[in-house]
Structure formats: structure tokens, C-alpha cells
């Protein structure tokens, strides 16, 4: 079954008098457990697509089904719930809360979801161990290296056991080796069954995905899963 089904999705932005067609009639299916890389030139609509997939943005036209359910018509409250339970984000600039420790940053999604403290503690401990951050649990983001920060962010994206992880240029702010390390972590998650959608500029990294999408001017111009 398809985890994600997009049909004729369009998104336009109004900038003063001019309108920008960020997405034009995108139709796309992604199955559970897939590893998809989205590539394309700057301004081609990759981030816009990812934000739509993550329910942070609404399309102007088309339907989006997540796990068989039409999520475009959900209320903001219900969408927040879907984000909380089914979707994990990893950002280029990490987006950690600066005043919170690594431990508290990882715990944050569970705090927002109202999960009991005992369960939270167990899951954070486990995540800290898995990502080799136990020593850094009490450190704030400004006391961590870029790679460590991104590992905290990935740990945070996974503690709620989401169905899909959306990563927008997760290695964009990291050097090559650290970036590869981070991608290996994400691939490890994918190997455990989590669907992974990653936007990247890096041809080499993108090439490691089992499926590549190329975007240009708001449209998917190449899909390695489709013949031709």
C-alpha cells in the first residue's frame, strides 16, 4: 500500500503582483519503507513539496492521502496530531531550542504530545545511547558540534516513532564526513522500516537512495522508479 499519495498537487505563492508557481500538478506515490531522494536546482520547489508532505503547508489544489486518509481537509488541530504521531522532520539548520539541553530537545515532541514522564525518560535514554549522545545529554546546543546537533535532531525526529522522516538538506551545514555519518544514521532508520524522504543538492548522497526524483520549475521531471 502507498504511504503517500499525491494527486495533481499545486501550490502558488503570491508575491506582490506576480504569482510564483512553486508546484505544478504534482502526482506521486511513495510506498511504506521507501528511500527517496529529491534533487533539483535551487527554487525548483523541493522544500515546498517537503513542507506539503509534512502538513506544514496546504496545497492550493489536489489531494494528499497519508496512510490512505485524505489529510488536506483535516482541521489544523487534526493536522498537528498527524505531525506529532506520524511525521518526523530533520532540518538543514538543525532547529534545536537553544536554551534546552540535548536531553530536553529530544524529549520535546513527547512533552508536547503529553506522554507520561516515565515513558519519556525511557525513550530519551534509549535514543541518547543509540546516537552516542549519552555523554552530551546535559549539554546545550551551543556546546555541541554540528554533527552532534544533527544527531540530536534525528533522535528528536524518531522518538515519536513516525511513519515517515522528512529531511530537508540534512547535510547542508555539515562537512563531507560528518554529512555522510548523518546520512548513514538516516539510512539505518530506513533499514528498520521508516520511510525516508530526503532533499539534497549532493549528487553522490542522492545517488545512494533507491529512488531519485528530479524537480525543475515546480514539476517532477524525472522519477527513477518510472520507466523512461
Amino acid at each position: 500500500m502507498s504511504l503517500i499519495e499525491l494527486a495533481d498537487i499545486a501550490r502558488t505563492f503570491q508575491l506582490g503582483d506576480s504569482t510564483v508557481q512553486a508546484l505544478r500538478s504534482i502526482s506521486l506515490n511513495i510506498a511504506t519503507g521507501e528511500y527517496v531522494a529529491i534533487m533539483g536546482p535551487s527554487g525548483s520547489g523541493k522544500s515546498t513539496l517537503l513542507n506539503l508532505l509534512g502538513l506544514l503547508d496546504r496545497p492550493d489544489a489536489g489531494t494528499y492521502r497519508l496512510e490512505g486518509r485524505d489529510v488536506t481537509t483535516l482541521s489544523p488541530e487534526e493536522q498537528a496530531r498527524v505531525r506529532s504521531e506520524r511525521i518526523g522532520f530533520v532540518f538543514q539548520s538543525f532547529h534545536l531550542v537553544p536554551r534546552l539541553t540535548a536531553h530536553d530537545n529530544i524529549e520535546l515532541p513527547m512533552v508536547l504530545a503529553g506522554i507520561a514522564p516515565v515513558e519519556r525518560k525511557r525513550r530519551v535514554q534509549q535514543a541518547l545511547e543509540e546516537y552516542g549522545l549519552t555523554e552530551r545529554a546535559r549539554h546545550r546546543p551551543d556546546q555541541l558540534s554540528g554533527g552532534q546537533r544533527q544527531r540530536v535532531a534525528i533522535a528528536r525526529a524518531t522518538v515519536m516513532h513516525p511513519a515517515v522522516i522528512l529531511a530537508d538538506e540534512p547535510t547542508g551545514n555539515l562537512d563531507r564526513t560528518t554529512g555522510e555519518e548523518v546520512v548513514r544514521l538516516l539510512e539505518g532508520l530506513n533499514a528498520e522500516g521508516v520511510t525516508l524522504v530526503m532533499v539534497t543538492h549532493d549528487q553522490v548522497l542522492g545517488g545512494r537512495a533507491r529512488r531519485q526524483l528530479s524537480m525543475e520549475d515546480g514539476a517532477i521531471v524525472h522519477d527513477s522508479a518510472l520507466p523512461g
Binding site: 489544523p76 488541530e77 498537528a80 506529532s84 511525521i87 532547529h95 531550542v97 520535546l108
Partner: peptide, 9 residues
């Protein structure tokens, strides 16, 4: 970020 993590308004 809070919104992305599923915080309600």
C-alpha cells in the same frame, strides 16, 4: 519548530 513537532495552536 514546535508546530513541526506537532504542537497545537
Amino acid at each position: 519548530l514546535l508546530k513541526a513537532l506537532g504542537a497545537r495552536a
